[in-house]
Amino acid sequence: MKVSLTVNGETREIDAEPRLTLLDALRDHLRLTGCHTGCEHGVCGACTVLIDGAPARACLLFAVQADGLEITTIEGLAPAPGELSLVQDAFCETHAMQCGYCTPGMVLTAHALLRDNPAPTRDAIVDAISGNICRCTGYGQIVEAIELAARRLAGSNAPAKGDAA
């Protein structure tokens, strides 16, 4: 059936079986491969996208259910080719990753957190990312990255373009 997906501000129509997950639709139909497949049963968070601004698991939603919703993927965060969002830059600054596989989900989760709570406590950061499993970092440098991003956000007069997700 025809499904209209609005991803990163652009609306595209795909032809999808009802059983096609949003994750597979993004990856295989729209070639937005920054959304990663980890467990396909809603635990690991590697497929996190923002739906109407809020983090959600793309593997737990069929594409047909997402018809007409506002979806943001990792590809929608960088302000311009070759540039990084403030959060992405902070992740690079603290080396908040190793293999990079969970990273898009972590970055999107961090964007959503900082939009709702620009000065999160460590506990709030930990809770926000606790639905995203990282096997490489032990989370330390991810927490540091989000703390750094929050400090930088506070230090700037207005969030830079692309940071509000």
Partner: peptide
């Protein structure tokens, strides 16, 4: 010094096996 690989990972441009068709 920064880790150069990180730049492609934070924007979702890692090139993993499932991304290769």
């Amino acid at each position: 010094r920064r880790v150069r690989e990180d730049r492609r990972f934070v924007v979702g441009k890692g090139r993993y096996i499932a991304d290769l068709a």
